[in-house]
Nucleic acid binder design. Structure first.
Length: 738
DNA sequence: GATGCTGCGCAGAAA
DNA sequence: GCGCAGCATC
């Protein structure tokens, strides 16, 4: 194994073989290189079977890249390795061994839309009012529970006394029951159920423990409790756990990631070896200095300072726009200029923003100048209605218990089947204890469904069961054709005679191509695997090898990627950092890490922009510059645009002082302004809080005080809809109720 | 039961 | 500025 190309720290990491190892890998420090070389080294120098190696990555794209890079080092042995995301590896385990806990190999995976639909049917059954509690609130809450491994039973034990929790307890239970009877798992279940399997069947766990002697986890800082548990259980026997991560890039707290997993690694795995990678191979020194300066403002992090051999490079370019359109125009002009001057080509640019909604204006500006671009994320191919419909048909063929998919397509295309019919069908199914699809078999026995409606249902049933019988013998492409002609979906869209419908028809044909390609690629093709793979696709997975244009994406989606030239846009208070961080210090720290992630995506050139005004909900509003701009070292920054810094300052109203006027921001000066303006002063008068107090927060709604920390001046509050927050009572818009 | 219109609420990030 | 829910109409 040739390790000449590695630096000292990287070599040390690669050559560490036994025991728990944490590699603290700063942005751009070559962690993928370390991971791939370490695995190659295991195989080549230690004769470790590839089949006893597991590597968990954040995206499928990262997994594939890792596989091909290892292959380049040691040859084609990687098919034996288990490389994938937490979710895909769990699917693999559950397909094999899920039967122990009552799941057939044909289980389906519910995405957030399916999940929402199922919660909706639970709402109906429980007579809950959507207006009282939006479905989304409960959806988040269920996911939050699962990320923390809180079962419905455990939740009930803890909260049954609280009348406000009664609805949720009932809903959570019913939701889980229905998932089970539908033979479906949501994203979070994939992990939860795998852990449940391991706990209930230690002999199953043991076979996996024995098999996987070496386990690797990438992006360890973003693991949640369930993922932590999964890794911990699997690695318990051999204790050869190699994790790579960077606490400064932890940006997924909101989906349960627990930064303590990486901070406490030595405690969890005594005797762990720690290797720090601080040399950066991606960015110029100026970009790194800017990033280091910003992230330093976060307390309680592992000290780490990125450095590079590379030159200082260009300064960071700052632009203050009049509004979001002006910001977009500036960006497009810069891109045009850089291309014209031959410094970059169009594939070198990425525009990073905080919220998806910001992409629209940017797209319009790019369109005007005919610059090709691709938006990563947003409405994905598999989220389009016509595609989801067809996928639901497939799910139903694979798994007839899937009532959610049944309800999605029973009247799609239109078969004149409405609420009444579905109610009757549902009652019939309930009575017989069958799935909705099975209930269709005896549709002629149902009172109130007759004539054309009964015929339509019988026909539907015939198509599904007919195709189901061919699943294992017929090519997926042929099944697709039979389905499409059977349900007359093309004809139905043709009838609409609209451009939109034509687009949908194109997408349907596109889906066929995708299925056929999948079939060619896989060793054991099957719709089951196709469905799982597409459901578990991430935004990053959808970026093609060679994109021929500017990439637009959220900061979250940009994690792990790099671009020669980056625009970090919309650096405004209450946008980036998000309005939800305005008086929540932990949230603000996470936003700051997000800012750090954004800055460190850039290789050569970085732009930071903000607008003085922005349309929000269709209203034109003035905007304050982001606190993060204050935190950037202005020596590294060059001001762009015809509007000089001096002019920008003169323009600004007295309160809108330029960000560069503020020397050492202790607390964000804009917080005070914003909260005073929006929250009546009454709410801010001196209040005392005690544990147990019911409070209400302007943004987070109702909650209860759990702890009062007078030393750090922090309240810990559990909010009904937003989970646990640590707030500063002096600035948070909260008041005691009841 | 299907279709089309209006108005409300809203958008933080996702496998 | 957009999407969805609810309502009116065919």
């Amino acid at each position: 194994m040739n390790l000449d190309g590695l630096n000292v720290a990287q070599k040390e990491a690669v050559l560490s073989v036994e025991g728990p190892i944490l590699v603290v890998a700063g942005a751009g420090s070559g962690k993928t290189r370390v991971l791939t070389h370490r695995i190659a080294h295991l195989i080549e120098s230690y004769d470790i079977f590839p089949s006893s190696i597991m590597a968990i990555t954040f995206t499928n794209k990262a997994a594939n890249e890792m596989k091909s890079r290892i292959e380049a080092l040691v040859g084609p042995v990687t098919s034996q390795m288990w490389v994938g995301t937490f979710h895909s590896l769990c699917v693999r385990i559950l397909r094999r061994d899920g039967h122990h806990i009552g799941y057939s190999r044909d289980f389906v995976i519910y995405d957030t839309a399916d999940q929402k639909a199922l919660i909706k049917t639970c709402f109906k059954a429980l007579n809950l009012d959507e207006k009282q509690t939006p479905i989304k609130t409960f959806q988040y809450k269920i996911s939050g529970c699962k990320n923390d491994m809180v079962t419905p039973e455990a939740y009930e034990i803890n909260f049954h006394k609280d009348p406000r929790e009664r609805d949720f307890i009932k809903l959570y239970k019913m939701y889980q029951d229905k998932l089970k009877s539908n033979q479906a798992l949501d994203f979070d279940d994939l992990l939860i159920k795998t852990i449940e399997l391991f706990k209930k069947y230690p002999e199953v766990l043991e076979t996996y423990q024995k098999k996987f002697k070496y386990i690797h986890v990438d992006e360890y800082q973003d693991t949640n409790k369930a993922q932590y548990m999964f890794v911990r259980m699997l690695s318990a026997k051999h204790r050869n756990l190699f994790v790579v991560g960077d606490g400064d890039q932890s940006i997924y707290k909101w989906r349960g990631a627990d930064i303590r997993n990486i901070l406490d690694f030595e405690k969890d795995y005594p005797g762990a070896k720690i290797v720090k990678l601080e040399q950066n191979y991606r960015s110029t020194q100026n970009i790194l200095d800017l990033a280091n300066g910003v992230i330093k403002k976060n307390p309680g992090r592992r000290d780490k300072n990125l450095w590079t051999d590379a030159e200082a490079g260009e300064k960071i370019r700052y632009f203050q726009a009049y509004d979001e359109k002006d910001e977009a125009r500036f960006i497009v002009n810069q891109i045009k200029r850089e291309i014209r001057e031959g410094n970059f080509n169009q594939t070198d640019f990425a525009i990073l923003y905080r919220t998806n909604a910001q992409s629209r204006v940017l797209e319009e500006a790019l369109n005007i100048e005919a610059i090709p671009y691709k938006v990563v994320g947003g409405l994905k191919f598999y989220e389009r209605k016509e595609i989801k419909d067809l996928m639901a048909y497939f799910k139903l063929m694979v798994n007839g218990y899937d009532d959610v998919s049944f309800l999605r397509v029973i009247n799609e295309p239109k078969r004149s089947i409405g609420d009444k019919t579905i109610e009757r069908l549902n009652a019939h199914a309930l009575e017989r204890g069958t799935s909705l699809l099975e209930a269709c078999a005896t549709v002629h026995e149902i009172d109130g469904i007759g004539g054309k409606t009964a015929e339509a249902i019988a026909e539907f049933y015939k198509i599904i069961t007919g195709l189901k019988a061919k699943l294992d013998t017929e090519y997926a492409g042929n099944i697709f054709d039979e389905l499409v002609s059977g349900i007359k979906i093309i004809e139905s869209y043709e009838k609409e005679r609209s451009e939109e419908a034509d687009g949908r028809i194109d997408n349907i044909y596109e889906l066929k191509t995708v299925i056929e390609e999948f079939e060619k690629r896989q060793d054991h093709p099957g719709l089951r695997d196709f469905l799982a793979e597409t459901t578990l696709k991430s935004d990053q997975d959808n970026i093609a090898e060679v994109e021929d244009g500017v990439l637009l994406m959220t900061l979250h989606a940009s994690k792990g990627l790099e671009f020669p030239s980056v625009f970090l846009v919309g650096l405004e208070q209450n946008l980036f950092p998000s309005f939800r961080a305005q008086d929540d210090m932990e949230e603000l720290e996470e936003e700051r890490r997000l800012c750090y992630v954004g800055i460190t995506r850039a290789e050569k050139l970085l732009y930071v922009t903000h607008a003085k005004n922005r349309n929000h909900f269709g209203r034109f509003e003035p905007r304050m510059p982001s606190v993060f701009l204050n935190e950037m070292d202005q020596k590294l920054i060059e001001v762009m645009g015809e509007r000089s810094l001096a002019a920008a300052l003169k323009d600004a109203k007295p309160k809108e002082i330029s960000v560069f006027d503020i020397k050492t921001p202790k607390k964000n000066p804009y917080f005070a302004n914003v909260t005073q303006k929006e929250a009546p002063v009454v709410e801010k008068t001196e209040q005392t809080f005690a544990p147990g107090d019911k409070v209400t927060h302007r943004v987070f709604g109702a909650g209860m005080v759990v702890t009062v920390d007078k030393v750090n001046n922090t309240l810990t509050i559990v909010f009904d809809a937003h989970g646990i927050k640590k707030l500063d009572p002096a600035i948070a818009p909260i008041k005691v109720i009841g």
